[in-house]
Structure formats: C-alpha cells, structure tokens
Design a protein around this nucleic acid. Structure first.
Lengths: 190, 190
DNA sequence: TTGACTCTAGATCGATCGTTCGGTTAGCAT
DNA sequence: ATGCTAACCGAACGATCGATCTAGAGTCAA
C-alpha cells in the first residue's frame, strides 16, 4: 500500500473522498484544504483549479480501473472464461473502489467541455473492453444478442448499479451477491 | 396535457429541468426564479426552502412513475406477459421522463436525513413492485434465480442505465433498443 | 552568495450562495 | 367597507464560493 507522501497526493486523496461523498459542486476547495490540513493555495499550485483536481483524480482512477480490468481479462482461457473473469473482476474492483467509481458518474454536468470529453473517453474505453470480449463470444457462437454495444451497456448497467445498492454491512455476502449478478449477466447474453 | 397554470407549477417545472441538467447543488434559487420569470421569494412561499422544492418534484414524479408502472403491469395476462409489460413500460416512461428519472439518482447526498429517507422510500417502492412480479414468476416456475431482490436490482440497473446512454438522436431506434434490452433482462432471469 | 524553482501560507478579491424581511397587490368572505 | 389570506416583489442579510496575489521557507545548481 503506497500511502500519500506528498501534499499533492494527500489533496487528491481527500478530494476523492469528499467528491464521492458530497458531489463536485457540493464540495468546496476549502473543505478539501481543511481536510488535508493544507492551504487552498496548494490546490491551485498543483492542479490549476478545482476542475483540474477532479480531472486528475478521474484520470488516475479510470486508468487504474481499465488497466486492472485488461490484465484480469487477458489471462489465458476460453472466451467465456475470460469474459466471466472480466465481470467478476469488475465487481470486485467496484467494491474496493466505491469512491472512485462513484465520481465517474457523478457530476458530469459540472465539467468543462474538455473535462466532459475526457470523462466520456474513460467510460468509452471500459465499454470498448466489454464490446471486444462480447464480439469474441459472438464469433465463438456461444451467445445470443444482436448488438454487442447494447449488451455492453446492459452489463455495465448491472455492474455499476451493483455498487449503488450493495452494502457490505447488509445480510447478503459479497460472494453470493457477486455470483448471482454474474449469472444474471451470463444468462442475459446467452 | 395539463400545462402549468400556477406560479407554483411553473416553478416546479423549471426547477425540474435545471436540477436534471445541472444537479441540485449546481442549480441556484436564482437560476430557477429567473427561468420561471418570478422572484426568489415565491420559492420560499410555496416550498419553504430549496430542498422543499426538490422534494415536491421528487414526490410528484415518483408517485406518477409508480402509479403508471402499477397500472401497466396489473393488466390481465400471464405472469411473464405482465412482467414484460412492466419492463417495457418502464423503458418507455424513462424515455419520456428522462429529467424526472435523472433527479431520482442525482444529489442524494445533498438532502437532509428526512429528504433522503423519502427518496429512498420512493425507490424502494419501485423495487418492491419488481420483486412482487419476480416472485410471481418464481412461483410459476418459469425463472431461475435465487434472490428476487438481487434480480430486481439487476433489472433496475439495466433499465436505469438505459436512460443514461440511450440518445434518441443516435442511430439506434428506440423500439429496437428497447427490444434488445428487454430480451437481455428476460434471459437474465431465466 | 546568488538565482531559480518548488511548495506552502495568509489575506483578500468580486461574485454568488440560500435565506429573510418588509411591503404590495388581488381576490374573496364577512 | 373591511379584514384575511395567498401570491407576489425587490432589497438586503451574512456566509461562502472559486480564484488571485504577495510573500516566506526550503532545496539545489552555478
């Protein structure tokens, strides 16, 4: 676990926490500075402005998510095994990266056009990863859907919704929930 | 189509538009008043405060959504037909009520505890409607899942995600998209 | 020792925020 | 006529917003 060793890292970490908790517009740079124990000047020194801070977090988080999903789903196996691994890894990661995943979908409307486009690109990359696997499944003839794009959206809906409703404090264990969600998806495309 | 005939209705209508567009924290009282052509004071006169305005919109929209879903899914037919009707109506309504549906999931964190609870209750009622139909399907033995609750969450994920990505300006027709989404769900639970 | 650069702090800017206040209409019952 | 009430307005409140400016402290190369 590489903890934050610079003021910049600490700012990004606390900002992530607060953005996920209160939203972008609902979090002030003073909140972030106070939570970090630094002055607001640091945010402007390190990130330019408030949106730069969000975009930096967005970039780090989404690149990490994409990388881990790619690694997990590129291991050897049949197309269906690889796809299953992709979904399960996505569910697993979403559990650990609740905060990060949350800001992907939060606050899109408060961004500048460039920031919005960047955010869209990250989400598009995840979508494309799913589409790639779905088309491999389609070629293998093991599935039954017309549009890989729609199927990918449907799957992302299920996976991303999972992190909205699943609470680890609740009665349902993560493993059982994850299995049921995965089966829903696998049945959905076949 | 009953248009707004009072200042109160006009305020709620414009507020809905802006909240859906910019988020709750991103929309100011002055924005709403200016868009309506009325003064700020009216908002406090009619709704108490900013949150009261949001809660009023939330109440109206979610009660209408629930009512229409109940009516659509309570028509005669086999359990599977009724369920299919529920999903399709939900997709159809989400298309027309994009703005309304959006504020359900936006901004939960900016609400007071009471407001948050009210919002949760509305979403829970939709979930329960799905659970009811899913349990009926389970009794009929036509489906294959363990937890109706998880299945209901999965379905809501697919449906609600649909209104995030579907754009009527795009190439895919709504009917074709809707059919594919519905089939994904039907396969998912069987 | 000097100069350049990075990181940090504090004060402060104008703008905007949600909210409150006092006052003005218009309609309607008594 | 008179009083009550809902519906409206404009001005103003204190607080907070994102952002800027000046400046001090630390490091390292020349």
């Amino acid at each position: 676990m590489a903890g934050p060793n610079s003021g910049k890292d600490k700012l990004a970490l606390n900002a992530l926490e607060l953005f996920a908790e209160r939203g972008f517009a609902g979090t002030s740079i003073r909140d972030i500075a106070k939570a970090t124990g630094l002055s607001i000047s640091n945010i402007y020194h390190h990130f330019g402005n408030k949106e730069g801070l969000l975009l930096a977090i967005l970039k780090t988080s989404s690149e990490r998510l994409l990388r881990e999903l790619q690694e997990a789903s590129n291991q050897p196996g049949t197309p269906i095994e690889r796809f299953k691994k992709l979904v399960q890894t996505h569910l697993q990661l979403s559990r650990g990266l609740r905060k990060e995943a949350k800001i992907f979908f939060l606050d899109e409307e408060h961004l500048s056009p460039e920031g919005y486009r960047a955010n869209l690109t990250y989400q598009r990359e995840i979508l494309d990863l799913y589409r790639k696997h779905l088309m491999a499944l389609q070629e293998a003839g093991e599935v039954n859907f017309k549009s890989p794009t729609i199927a990918a959206f449907n799957i992302l809906g299920v996976v991303n919704w999972h992190l909205r409703w699943y609470r680890s404090e609740g009665q349902m264990s993560f493993e059982e929930t994850s299995r049921e969600v995965t089966e829903f998806i696998l049945h959905g495309i076949s």
